[in-house]
């Protein structure tokens, strides 16, 4: 187990550096980080040169990347061009987005898995077909459409929620945005659980459990569900990273000042330190979530052992 974790951590290192290098190149080489600083006008050459040397942009790219990474490991993510420390932006943005992601994952787990179990056990029946078509429709509606429509109906027309949330939103303010963020994944979780349950429902161990006279509830929850959850857990695990990065749309619609908001502002203003910094953290979250998922396999299925 310990050796497995160490091997996985070692494998993550090249992926971590590769991804951060890629995003660093995309931001710094393809775009001109100075371009956004003087408004829509071209910067005056002398100012531009001064800014370049101030931010170290006159050095070769690999050197810039190494300097940046060196700073990151000492906890210095640089300053955004407006003078604020990127770490300060992170300290306000991440708690909000983490709350939003928790709400979304809870929706995925509770609604998605329940619907999946219900439909998987009744394959081919009207409930199953209806839910299956509904999930397709939900997957087809892009997040920005779900978000705007729910905002229009619940917020503007019926006044059930406030159309936008406060500066430091609580969990209950984030219920609707969380549902919007979760919607597409929720439908995927339902479909995955359904397929997995339906496949395992015919397994011998289920028949044995039923033959032993175990109550149906126990058969479904302890035997069937536990064995069917592996693909679902895999999906939810990888989704955590995607949700945090994908919150950009949801956060924009409900005016939530989280990671997505900072990334959006950073990209629009070509604020490279902000963008690279936030994406670096997102990549770390993504890699960590993947590792945790792999370790969860052994919990769900004791036959899986890590050497």
């Amino acid at each position: 187990m310990g050796r497995y974790v160490i091997r996985r951590l070692l494998q993550m290192i090249p992926v971590f550096f590769g991804t951060t290098l890629l995003i660093f190149l995309m931001v710094n080489v393809m775009g001109d980080p100075i371009a956004g600083l003087c408004g829509d006008r071209q910067c005056d050459p002398a100012t531009a040169a001064q800014l370049r040397s101030e931010f170290g942009l006159d050095k070769p790219v690999w050197q810039q990347y190494l300097t940046y990474m060196g700073n990151v490991f000492t906890g210095d993510f640089g300053t955004a061009f407006n003078g604020q420390k990127v770490t300060e932006l992170m300290a306000t943005a991440f708690p909000i987005t983490i709350r939003l992601t928790i709400v979304a994952v809870v929706f995925e787990v509770v609604i998605g898995i329940s619907l999946g179990v219900v439909t998987g056990l009744r394959r081919g029946r009207p409930v199953d077909t209806t839910v299956l078509i509904l999930t397709l429709v939900v997957i087809a509606i892009p997040t920005f459409v779900t978000g705007l429509l729910l905002q229009l109906l619940l917020g503007v027309k019926w006044g059930i929620i406030k159309p936008s949330v406060s500066a430091d939103p609580t969990f209950d303010e984030l219920l609707v945005p969380g549902l919007v963020l979760a919607s597409v994944s929720l439908a995927y979780v339902t479909r995955l659980t359904r397929t997995s349950i339906a496949e395992n429902a015919r397994a011998d161990y289920v028949r044995t459990a039923v033959a032993k006279g175990l109550p149906r509830r126990r058969v479904v929850v302890r035997h069937l569900l536990r064995n069917s959850l592996i693909p679902v857990v895999t999906f939810i695990g990888t989704d955590v990273g995607a949700l945090m990065g994908g919150a950009i749309v949801t956060e924009r619609i409900f005016n939530i000042h989280g990671v997505g908001y900072q990334l959006y502002q950073g990209i629009l203003r070509q604020n490279s330190q902000t963008v690279v910094g936030f994406v670096t953290i997102l990549v770390l979250v993504f890699l960590a979530a993947n590792l945790i998922v792999d370790l969860l396999y052994a919990v769900l299925d004791p036959r899986i052992r890590y050497a």
């Binding site: 992926v15 590769g18 990065g245 994908g246 959006y264 990549v283 890699l287």
Partner: peptide
């Protein structure tokens, strides 16, 4: 496979936005 992992790790919408702004 590692190159694939690297590209897979970049959040899709964020990455596309970064490229498009240039």
């Amino acid at each position: 496979s590692r190159i694939t992992d690297v590209f897979f790790g970049v959040p899709f919408i964020v990455g596309a936005m970064v490229i498009l702004t240039t």
